[in-house]
Design a protein around this nucleic acid. Sequence first.
RNA 1: GGUCCCAUCGUCUAGCGGCCCAGGAUAUCGGCCUCUCACGCCGAAGACACGGGUUCGAACCCCGUUGGGACUACCA
Length: 472
Amino acid sequence: MEPVITRFPPSPTGRLHIGGARTALFNWLFARNRGGRFILRIEDTDVERSTEESVKAILEGLEWLELTWDEGPYFQTQRLDLYVEYANKLIDSGRGYWCECSPEDLDIRRSAAMAEGRKPKYEGTCRLKGLGPGSNRVLRFRSPDAGTTLLRDIIKGPIEYDNSELDDLVILKSDGMPTYNFAVVVDDITMGVTHVIRGDDHVNNTPRQILIYEALGAKLPEFGHVPMIHGDDRSPLSKRHGATSVMEYKKMGFLPEALTNCLARLGWSYGDQEIFSRTELIEKFSLENVGKSPSIFTMEKLLWLNAHYIKEKRPEDLVAPLKPFLSQRGYPDKSDAYIAGAIRTLQARSHTLVEMADAMRFYMADEIEFDPDAAREFLTADIAGALGRLIFEVSELEPFDEKGLEPVFRNIAADLGVKLGKIAQPVRVALTGTTKSPGLFEIIELLGKQTVLKRLQKGLKHIEERHSPDSV
RNA sequence: GGUCCCAUCGUCUAGCGGCCCAGGAUAUCGGCCUCUCACGCCGAAGACACGGGUUCGAACCCCGUUGGGACUACCA
C-alpha cells in the first residue's frame, strides 16, 4: 500500500482556532495511525491578510498540542514558479485562458443576475477571445459545460455535481498569485498528498478541484470532509462564543492532552469510550468513525477532561505548567517540592490550572486575609479555649505530620464532647482564610509548624479583639 | 435565489432493519462518603425534528416538510 501523506494548510490570517486544530489533529492522527507523513503548509497567497505574526501563532498552537509535522512548513508564496508552470500546462491543453473582465464589471453582472433570479456565475465572456497575459488580466480554468463530477467522500459518501453548476474559476489572480482552488491542487499533487482531510466548508470546492486534477492528468487523492464545529447557537464558532483560539485555552489553564482528547471526540467516536491517551488515539483513530453532522463546542466536557488529566498527573509533572500561573499571581517563590506537595492536595479539587493557582494562595502567600463571612461564623469566642489548647499541643508535637496531628484534634474534640468539624472549621479559617480547602491535616503538615502556629495565634487574636469590651 | 450537506437526551455521542418502549459520557438534581470543599460511589430526570411511504418489523431504507449549515470572490 502506498504511504499515506496528509497535510494541514492554514492560511495565516489569525490564530489557530478550535476548528483548525481539530482538522490538524485528524490529519495528524490519520497519518500516525497509518504510519504516514503529515505536512504543514502555509497558504499565504492572500498577501493582504497574511501576517508573519499569524504564522508564529499557528505554529505555537500546533506545538502546544504536539501536532508535530514531518515536512514544512511550506509557504505558497515561495512556490509561485510551480503554479505558473502548472497554469501553463492548462493553457497548452486549452483548459486555461486569459480574461480581462474587471472585478467591478463582474460584480455588477453578478448582482444583476441575482436580481433577475439567474445563477450568478461567470458567463465565459473571454473564453473565445484568445487573449494573452497582460496587466489586469486573470487566468481562468475552462470548466466543462456538461456532464457530472463525482466526489467519493470517505466521510460523507458519494456526492454528484452537475458541471453546468460550476463556472470558469480564476486560477491566477492579476497580481500573479494563484487562487486557493488552484494552489491547493498543485500543492497536493506535487507534495504527493494521498488523503485530503478538511472541513465541510470545502465540499463544494471539491468538484472544481477534481476537474483541475483531471485536466492536469493527475491522480485524485482520497477526500474526507469533516463536519463543522459550531457555537452554542449553531452558528459558526466565533469570538462571541467565547475563546476560539487554542492558545486561549492554555491561558485558561487547560492541559494540551485535555484539549486534544476533547477535540478528538468532537465528530469522532470509538464506541462508548471517552478518555483516550495520545497513543490510544493514534491506535484507534479512523475516518470511518467520523460522524457526518456538525457539533457544538462547549467547555463542559473540556472542563471535565481537564480535571481528569489534572487528577491523573504526577504532582511533580504539574509544577512546570503551573508555575506561570503562580508567578502571574505574584506569589513568593517556593521550592518545587513544596509546590508539588500543594498540588497533590489540590489535584482532585481543580478543573483548571487557574483554579489550582487561585486555590493555592494560602500555601504560597506569607500573610492571609480572613474571609469576613467565614471569620464571623467560625472564629467565635466559644472555640477560643480549644484553639489555645491546640496551639500548645501542636507546638509540642514531634514529629509534625498528618499521622500525629489527627489524634491531637480528635482528642480535643472528644474532651469537649463535640464533633471534629466543630474545631476543624475554625482552624481551617485560621489557616486558609476560607471555609473550603483540602484536608486539614495534610494542609497543616505541608504548611509547617511555624506557619501553622503563627496563623493559629492570629486567629485567636482575631477572636479576642472581636470580643473585647471596647470593640462593638 | 441556485447547488450541496446535515438532523438521536441541554451538550458530545453509540446505534449501521429485529439485541432499542434507544446505550455511554457530560451537565443538572437527589443520596452515600466526610473535618469543609472537592473527588469517588449509587440513583433520578432527560432524545430518535415532523409527515408520508417500503417492510412481518424502522432511530436505522425512500420521498416530502421544517430547521440548521456550507458554497456560490482576483478569501482561504
